[in-house]
């Protein structure tokens, strides 16, 4: 998806580890973010997503490993590194007793050379013009999320880190957020790092994804590639034996106890041909579903049997 863009590395994480007490909870994480891509960080709750993110934004000190943001080491050049980073960690918690504008003003004061124009720009970008002078305590969660994004974008960062950005949003809010994130990556050239425990969400908005479990990255790759291996077609055929026999000529077929037929998904053209053959042979296709694997399926596949705790 971002093949036409240059592969400039904006965030690089190497050998990241964190030990709390005697227990190591992050066991060496490596990955890189490129300019203009949305990078998904996928894992079940408790996999170490939040700890990793907090290390990326300097809230937690890593026990070992390096984090570089646009070439600046987070530990050695904290200020320079953070100038290139915008983030929302968990919920966008803002000062409820101040107005949206006053909140932005606070953050602008902490950045070098951010004026009123830029503040107006981000307010417009997230569409909060109408309510920006109201107190934040009167905002809905969606509006807080927008204000959170506004503050994250205020300093014109090259890397944007969003922790579960669609958490708590309603369906239309989720859709809007997704489009907005795509816009930021494609039009503004930002690298957006998005964490989630929902595979469907990652699938809809990310270019690449890292799958993390128990403090380790299991796999990093293009979303399509990763999921492509796992997509399935579920069939309900009548009569069953005849239909199964036809499909078996083309692909591997599994029949469940309930009489459901499972085959791999190749592409739409192939599927069409199979259906045509079935119908021509007098087999009734009662139902046919393309199934995206659940996170659990994916984990089972990648870890070879290990389930989510």
């Amino acid at each position: 998806m971002n093949n036409n863009m240059n592969k400039e590395i904006t965030l690089s994480v190497q050998g990241l580890r964190k030990t709390i007490g005697k227990k190591e909870i992050i066991h060496g994480i490596d990955f890189e973010l490129h300019r203009g891509e949305v990078f998904g960080f996928l894992g079940p709750n408790g996999a170490g997503k939040t700890t990793t993110i907090r290390m990326l934004v300097g809230l937690i000190q890593p026990t070992a490993g390096t984090i570089e943001i646009c070439g600046y080491d987070l530990k050695k050049n904290f200020t320079e590194a953070m100038e290139n980073l915008g983030c929302i960690v968990e919920n966008p918690e803002l000062y409820p007793y101040l107005s949206g504008w006053e909140n932005l003003q606070l953050f602008a004061n902490m950045l070098p050379k951010i004026g009123i124009e830029r503040m107006n720009e981000v307010v417009e970008l997230v569409g909060l013009q109408q309510r920006i002078n109201d107190k934040v305590q009167t905002y809905s969660l969606g509006m807080r999320q927008r204000l959170g994004i506004a503050q994250a974008l205020l300093g014109r960062p090259k890397v944007l880190i969003l922790d579960e950005p669609t958490n708590g949003l309603d369906p239309s809010g989720i859709r809007e957020m997704r489009q907005f994130i795509r816009f930021l990556a494609e039009q503004e050239g930002l690298s957006v790092f998005v964490s989630s425990h929902l595979l469907s969400e990652i699938q809809l908005m990310c270019d690449r994804v890292a799958i993390i479990s128990k403090g380790q990255v299991l796999q990093v790759g293009e979303v399509r590639e990763l999921l492509g291996q796992q997509e399935r077609l579920l069939w309900k055929l009548s009569p069953l034996e005849k239909g199964t026999a036809i499909l078996e000529k083309h692909t591997e077929v599994t029949v469940t106890e309930e009489g459901q037929v499972i085959t791999a998904y190749v592409d739409g053209h192939q599927t069409g041909l199979w259906i045509q053959q079935l119908v021509e042979a007098g087999v009734m296709v009662q139902e046919m579903n393309r199934q995206v694997p659940t996170l659990e399926d994916l984990f089972l596949h990648i870890t070879g049997g290990e389930t989510i705790d």
């Binding site: 934004v57 300097g58 953070m82 919920n91 918690e93 803002l94 953050f107 902490m110």
Partner: peptide, 14 residues
């Protein structure tokens, strides 16, 4: 307790 510490400490300020 408000959680704003996360915003405060992720600015480019030591």
């Amino acid at each position: 307790s408000l959680g704003t510490i996360k915003l405060l400490l992720t600015r480019p300020v030591k």
